[in-house]
Structures are given as C-alpha cells and as structure tokens.
Nucleic acid binder design. Structure first.
Lengths: 213, 213
DNA sequence: GTCTATAGGTCGATAGAC
DNA sequence: GTCTATCGACCTATAGAC
C-alpha cells in the first residue's frame, strides 16, 4: 500500500469530483429543490446509475457539496491564521477584524463566481438531513469556532460592537456569504465584481462596528 | 349594483382569503418549491378542485400571495407618508431615514410572525413567472419608487452614505426584509422579538450610514 | 377522483480490461 | 472467459392540473 493510490482509485476520485462540482454549480444556480439528479449526472458526464453507485441519495449529494465548500472555507481560514501568526512573530500583528473581512470577502467572491451552493433558507427536509450529517456538522462547528475566536477578539479590541451578541455577528457573516444583494448587483450588470465586494463588505462591517458616539 | 356585494361574492372572497393566507404561511415556512398545492388546499380547508376553480396554477398562487404582501407594504408606506405630511404641516418634519427604518422594521416583524412569504432567492422558473405577472410587477415598481424617494432624500440629507448607489440601498432593504439572520436569532430562542428587530435594524442602517471620518 | 408528467431511485444488459 | 464497472431503460410515488 504505497502512497500512490491505484489508477482505479484515481479515476474514482476524478468522477467524484466531477459530480461534486456539478452539484455545487447547480445548487448555486437553481437551489436544491429545483436541481434534479438527472441534471447532476448529465453535467458530470455520466449515467444516473453510476452516480448512485457513489452517492446514495440526492440529500447526500447536497451534503457532500456543502462539506466541500465548508472545507474550502476552513482551509482559507487556516491559511489566514497561519499567515497572521508569521506576521505577528515578525512584529506585525494582524487585526482579527481583517481576518473576518478576508473570509467574508472570499465567501462573497465565491458566490459571484457561481460556486457558492445555496440551500433553502432554514426550512424543508434538507435542513434535517444536513443536521444529521456528521461530516457537515463537524465542518460547520469547526468554522464557527474559528470565526468566533476572531469575533471575540474583535469585540474585545473594539473593532466590533461589543454590545451585540457574538451569535448575531456569526449569523450575519454566514448570511452575508449568501447575500442576495451580491447577486442582484451582479445581475444589474452595472458594477464590477470589485465594486460589489467592496460595497457589500463595507456596509456589512460598518453595521457591525462600534457605534458612533 | 349596490355597494353591498352579493352573499355569493362574499363567500367567494372569504375562501380566496383563506387560500391566500395559507399560501402566505406555507411560503414563509417551507418556500415555494417545497409547498404543495395539496397542502394549500388542506390548510385552506377545501378540496383541491375548488382551489383550481379560483386559481389556475401554483405559480399564480405564489403571485397572488406576493401581491398581497406588497400591497400591505404599500399601504404601510402610504400611511407613513400621509402621517409625515401631517406632521410636516404642524412644523415637525419627519426624517426620510426614519420612514425607511419603519418600513424595514415592519417587514422584519412580518417575517418574525411567519407571514413573510419567501421565494427562491433569484433562480428557478418562479422568477420568470413573477416577472411576467403584471399585478406583481406593478406593486413592486410602486414600492421601489416610494422607497427610492426616501433613499434619495436620505442620501441628500446626509443620513445615508451618498457614495453608495441608490440601487444597492434599495436591494439591501428588500434583502433584509427576508434576512435569514432574523429567523436564526428567533430560532435560537434566546432573544425577544424586540431585541432582534432592534439589532438587525441597527446593523443594517449603521452599515448604510455615512462613514465615520 | 383521475390523469399525466416528472423525478428519485433500481437493476439487468453490455462492453471492455485483464 | 470472467469480472467489474458503466449505462440507460425501467419502476414507482408524488404532485400539478382538471
């Protein structure tokens, strides 16, 4: 059992990635209910039967896609944390508020690229399925914990309004990652992606900042 | 043709209202795709066949519910405008930003009561159906126009950041009316409705306010 | 209550690698 | 020749429509 996986396993991996990518894009554009497994199979370039050999249900497909995006968010956050640690040791500490802004901007940019899967807001049977999905819940908790550390530091440091419940700040950042305002501005076609990101990011964080006297 | 409608017409009206109310609540809790016409009929207390005598399709049901909520928003806004006019003539002018806050608070409160129908964010075939629904588009335009007047005044008067595109402000207010943060905070069960409204409203408007120097 | 279309889910046929 | 993996026809339940 060497480090190199067998050809067969590699092929399997490629097909899985194709499926997850297709689910990601379809969830981003149509949402869970409107997405059909036939579409996923077509978009991934394989038969539905083959797809069901790898994933047992439509709900599982959504779960895997969500785990994927949470993993990317976690990787991005971890990179930020590592970089901040380096800089701090070099005598140039990074403000936690900037970390939060960076993650939120990454999420919004992901949405602009049509790669942010969107779920039905809080209803439907999918929520229940996700909440009993251990892999999903594990990532969600990890990301929430990571963000909560920065939120607490920013509130202590006076960059975030300390009178707001930390939960509210956390929920707001998650919500803004899928903010329909981003999509609406993009669809208007009047603005560049950079403008959209700057505006939505600044209105979000100005709103969470310490109130003016 | 007297002012009093016939008994038959009144009954018809009551049944229609029952249907629209049911659609409203189901759209608010499950969303359009997860809502079934069978559920609507059951919730409204009538047979599906009777329902289809009054409304031709599921899309039409959604359209009628959306027209209803927009009509309520318009009525609320019109009342605000009339009241402001009175007060202005009495020498106590009302700030346009307070009008915008009042409408947004009303929308969020409606959501907290489970009466704010939620649509699939911007995707799916429902959007297309709504955009060709004249009654819906008419109300949407009217409400947008009303809000845009206040937005322009607030930007001129320095209560809103004048460097933001008015469209962005308008989209943000519409989006916050259905902000998932409101539902998340409510579901957490830790806060009163008043706290939730105050917090979400203040973070929204602080974010849109003029930047600190 | 009935019809029909559609979409989630299954399985036997088949083709290609060894 | 066998074995595995892929395909796509098929089944069935449900939901929109009448």
């Amino acid at each position: 059992m060497g480090a190199r996986p067998s050809i067969k396993a590699q092929l399997q991996r490629v097909r899985e990635d194709a499926i997850v990518g297709a689910v990601n894009r379809l969830l981003a554009t149509k949402g869970y209910d409107a997405m059909t497994v036939d579409e996923v199979a077509a978009e991934a370039g394989m038969a539905k039967g083959s797809l069901y050999k790898m994933f047992g249900s439509k709900e599982e497909l959504a779960g895997v896609a969500m785990v994927g995006v949470l993993d990317r968010a976690l990787a991005f956050s971890e990179a930020l944390r590592a970089r901040a640690e380096e800089l701090a040791q070099a005598g140039r500490p990074v403000s936690p508020i900037d970390q939060l802004k960076a993650v939120t901007r990454w999420a919004m940019a992901t949405q602009l690229e049509g790669e942010m899967p969107s779920l039905p807001s809080h209803n439907s049977n999918l929520s229940a399925s996700l909440q009993s999905n251990d892999a999903y819940m594990d990532r969600l908790m990890s990301l929430s914990n990571r963000l909560s550390i920065w939120i607490a530091e920013a509130q202590t440091g006076g960059q975030l309004n300390a009178t707001l419940p930390p939960d509210l700040v956390l929920y707001t950042l998650f919500a803004r990652a899928c903010d329909p305002v981003v999509a609406l501005l993009k669809d208007s076609g009047q603005y560049t992606n950079e403008q959209i990101l700057d505006w939505v990011l600044s209105t979000t964080f100005e709103g969470l900042a310490v109130r003016r006297a």
